[in-house]
């Protein structure tokens, strides 16, 4: 549904995005994750036909971004980052205007429908200028849904919503994501983790990692830290643990608690458990730190120069460079 290749956009001498290649299928929710200035908005503006790329090509909803922009725009719903609206119009007036521009049949019915979907129907007659930030966000979302778009692109859709609203909007996005293609950007990793089938992390205009949230977590956690607690006597345990293959380091944090570092890509829990039990110690607890997307994100985007040096090879995310 979305398929882009080597997308590059330069603003004068500044390269905002640099040879991005990615795709998003029907029925998929793809999260676009990255720090400020990473190029998320720029990419989305290209995907929605607002501006053409400096280089590269892409197809959205089956049409070419460059040569069939009008067809693309007919099929894409877009919630821009700043949620631009006309403050002097009422919610209905505004949605009716957008529906008319999109030449939607039975406009009035459809407008009522989307207002209900985003729960703005009780404020239908309010002037947009008098709405709160979150309510405006919902109006923007309603606008993006008007024409039942095949591809929905949302630039930071959760921004400014209260937790209750976030929950509702997430449910709405999930619902839409079942049938259509959804692409959303966010800084908030928990949202991406919860919502997306696939996450693309970009920094400095390049893709630094791309995978499912779960796999991204284990990629890093694979070489992770294991916590161990035993009951009572723990003499000689450290030495026994060090002898296990794959264990890099063992630290005693309390008399009965240990932290064990294992080599990347290994899960040493089985071996450790075995060693502890056969050695006669009494195993109380054994668990592995699961890196949250947050850690991965910080890791990957910590230093933009680093990120750029490691180019767009997702595999590199395995190697801790520090």
């Amino acid at each position: 549904m979305i398929q882009v290749e080597d997308l590059t956009k330069r603003y004068g001498a500044r390269t905002a995005i640099d040879r991005l290649t990615f795709h998003a299928n029907k029925g998929e929710i793809v999260g676009f994750l990255g720090p400020n200035g990473a190029g998320k908005t720029t990419t989305m503006r290209i995907l929605t036909g607002f501006m053409p790329p400096s280089e590269g090509s892409g197809r959205v909803a089956g049409f070419d971004l460059l040569t069939e922009s009008l067809e693309v725009r007919k099929r894409v719903g877009y919630l821009p980052e700043s949620v631009p609206l006309y403050p002097e119009m009422t919610v209905v007036q505004y949605l009716d205007f957008m529906a008319e521009l999109r030449q939607i049949p039975n406009r009035a019915d459809r407008v009522d429908e989307v207002m209900e979907m985003v729960r703005i129907d009780d404020r239908a007659e309010s002037y947009i200028g008098n709405l709160s930030k979150g309510l405006r966000q919902r109006v923007g979302l309603a606008q993006a849904l008007l024409h039942k778009p095949e591809v929905l692109i949302m630039d930071e859709p959760m921004d400014g919503l209260d937790p209750q609203q976030q929950k509702e909007v997430k449910a709405l996005i999930r619902e839409i994501g079942k049938e259509q293609t959804v692409m959303l950007s966010t800084h908030i990793l928990a949202h991406a983790q919860e919502l997306c089938n696939r996450v693309i992390i970009i920094a400095g205009g390049r893709i630094v990692a791309e995978d499912t949230p779960e796999r991204l977590s284990t990629q890093i956690a694979g070489g992770g830290r294991i916590h161990l607690q035993v009951d009572g006597d723990s003499d000689g345990l450290v030495e026994a643990l060090r002898a296990i293959s794959g264990v890099v380091d063992v630290r005693r944090v309390a008399s009965d608690r240990f932290e064990i570092e294992t080599a990347p890509g290994t899960d040493g829990r089985a071996k450790i458990a075995h060693a502890v039990v056969t050695g006669g110690w009494r195993l109380l607890e054994l668990h592995r730190d699961k890196a949250s997307l947050e850690e991965i994100f910080l890791e990957l985007t910590k230093d933009e120069k680093d990120a750029q040096a490691s180019v767009a090879l997702p595999k590199k995310s395995n190697q801790r460079s520090t």
């Binding site: 036909g49 631009p84 521009l101």
Partner: peptide, 14 residues
């Protein structure tokens, strides 16, 4: 100024 141009230029109008 307000950015609504983004809205219009991403709608299917010439």
């Amino acid at each position: 100024r307000t950015g609504t141009l983004e809205l219009l230029l991403t709608a299917p109008i010439k």
